[in-house]
Design a binder for these strands. Structure first.
Lengths: 231, 231
DNA sequence: AATAAAAATTGAACTAGCACAACTTTTTTG
DNA sequence: CAAAAAAGTTGTGCTAGTTCAATTTTTATT
């Protein structure tokens, strides 16, 4: 994790880059005036569950996984953080610690935005706040969906769901599967690595997916959707 | 579910009642100007997962359970809604449907506040929005805790946690346990009713808790805390 | 290229928790 | 208050998924 100079910003943050298209003007300002830009290498933690959070992270380039940690180094992957997305928004609104960890799965350029700066703008401008909160609430709705998956579906359904989810990134990031280990995939489906391997092999033999080293291609998406629903 | 006349409001909503103490002035205004007050009987649904949400509920009197539903009438209880708490805040910020259900476990007086009214005030007043969002984020942080519990703890730990949680209500609502069936308790711990019964009996025999019909007394809280942590 | 370290794979044994069935107790209802 | 329905209780067998251990493949390092 190395600090980036002001000169790098122009390069890192091409204001026309896709990841900035979704931002509201006020959000744009916030990003633009952010003083601290940092670079994370593959495998670095962007946030660590339980640590003090005085800033919010904005992913400018690269991919990371957001996950919750349990005891004895177990973890469950919540989502893949893409460029243009915020990490740690909840700590702006209440709480002073991150309630999840995140780890870079490729080299990342990240902008750190002070919480106080965000709070300040929100107080001045309700509309701006609503925008940020919508992004936050979006993530929250997924949390409910995740809870249902974990509670009510079994291995096969969860794996199908995980594969379909990761696959949605493949359009913009064709290398996404090659960045993930079997353990990563297992942690999306909330199963053991061994179970994940066995299921993947089975799906491969049945022609539902195609395993090609680390890369995975979904050959029969309708079938996987079915699996996802049936649990 | 019967509509309450304006005359009833004074009676229902004693402005000095404890449940109003925590409200911000703007929130108070919102509640005060709320036109629709409804009464739910024990067993009625206040919200139903997936249905259209044009309003937010404010619990004035009574207790309810908030829960997520799965297939084949399985459900998982998230929390007990007490007087002074809002239900369905997320739908204000984004999404048009409730992402959970809730059901009255005693007769309830509930005020319905139009989403549009809330949005309007937020746009005018960022501080007001922050207050509401803090309440919302609070619930969200619990969701992460819940996810960890479900993922990493087993029956005993989950039951201990559920009992300790429900017990926190006992000070203000001594009858809380008697309002809950074994199935309700099981659904807090995310286990089957049968398993819940067996565990409760075991804890009773070991003198950790005392079963008295439907009521439950925690005799050895430190031990339960230990169980909760160890999973 | 050789060696070490990490990740992937496979099979076998084990277990937490569930489903089912039978029965008892409590609650509701006409 | 009697009958019916709902809730609670208990034991038994079953199974989805884990754990463990051994082996192979891939990746990183010197």
């Amino acid at each position: 994790m190395k600090t980036i100079t002001a000169q790098d910003i122009e390069y890192l943050c091409d204001i026309n880059a896709p990841c900035f298209q979704a931002l509201a003007p006020k959000e744009m300002d916030l990003i633009r005036t952010s003083k601290t830009q940092v670079q994370f290498r593959k495998g670095d933690n962007l946030t660590k569950q339980g640590t003090f959070a005085s800033y919010v992270l904005f992913m400018a380039k690269g991919l990371a996984i957001q996950y919750v940690e349990g005891d004895n180094n177990k973890s469950f992957n919540l989502r893949i953080i893409q460029p243009g997305e915020f990490v740690g928004l909840s700590s702006v609104f209440s709480g002073n610690t991150f309630n999840y960890s995140s780890i870079a799965i490729s080299d990342c350029h990240v902008l750190l935005v002070e919480k106080s700066a965000i709070s300040h703008v929100i107080e001045q401008n309700g509309m701006f706040g609503l925008g940020l909160i919508r992004r936050y609430t979006e993530q929250n709705m997924n949390l409910f969906e995740t809870l249902r998956t974990v509670l009510y579906k079994q291995m096969m359904g969860r794996m199908a769901e995980s594969l379909l989810y990761i696959n949605t990134m493949k359009e913009h990031y064709p290398e996404v599967f090659t960045l993930l280990s079997r353990k990563h995939i297992a942690d999306f489906a909330a199963i053991t690595t061994e179970s994940a391997v066995k299921i993947l092999k089975t799906l491969d033999k049945e022609g539902i997916i195609k395993l090609d080293g680390k890369d995975i291609s979904l050959l029969n998406e309708p079938y996987l959707h079915d699996l996802k629903l049936k649990g």
